[in-house]
Amino acid sequence: MGSASDRLPRKDRSDIQRMIADIVDGAGKLEIWGTFAWDEIQNRYRRSVFGLAWIGLSFILFVAAISIFFGAFAELDSGAFVSYVAIGFAAYQFLIANVVDGCHVFARAAGWVKSSNLPYSVYVYKGVSRALFPFFIHLFIALLILPFFGWRPNGNALFAIPALLLFTLTAVPLQFLLGLLAARWRDVGHLVQAISRIFFFTSPVLWVYAETTGIRRDLADFNPMTHFIAILRDPLLGVSPSAYHWGLSLSWLVCISIVAVLVGGAMRRRLPFWV
């Protein structure tokens, strides 16, 4: 069957089934969203002298500044704090990029949504791969420089691989959901923008989760980012994976996926009228 008919409804399909078919069909169009994402990455850094190196440079600048300034507030020794910040910040950046960019995932592709019969998830996969690219550069740079700060990974580090998989799996329904909501209600974009600043300070990047108590600990636990950051960072710092953080992260993935499919089933067909 031709690609063009993928988004055409069939009598025997419910809206929910069409939403799921959209996600599945879009994943198969790797060549399209891969090309889209790569073009966007290149265009973003075109005509700058350092080009793509800026992704790494801005990361190093941030980690260096935070380590010098906030390192004094933490009980961790300074070398360990650098590792803590570097990996935590990389994880946080990826998560928040998916939240913030997710709100624009369809709005920015408005011309395509209106004129092409590609599955809508193509634009979501494009957005997620565009966010993965700097994420992997950040992680790569972190792994490159951290040995100089006394970082010695152990076997637990392998648990970072399923964590990365979970990050990616969560990003897809998250962007689809936020993209639909923000296309329908423009306020969602503004709300998320406002909340993203709160997320930054309530996520364990600048401060150490293990050192928090009382209401600060409760707030941190309430923030889903805490658990996602933990499942990636803990094993890389040599700590064995925690069932608590993994359980909560997986629960968030399930919740977001269910809500995304339900909302997508109800709202997806109106998308071309909203963007």
């Binding site: 069957m1 031709g2 690609s3 063009a4 008919s5 993928d6 988004r7 055409l8 409804p9 069939r10 009598k11 069409r18 209106k114 004129s115 092409s116 019969n117 067909r269 071309p272 009228f273």
Partner: peptide
């Protein structure tokens, strides 16, 4: 017909590559 908007009721079936 081009598959850009789904009908609220009824269905559109097509075979082959559609362009608009």
């Amino acid at each position: 017909i081009a598959g850009l908007i789904p009908p609220d009721r009824g269905s559109v079936r097509s075979e082959g590559r559609i362009n608009n």
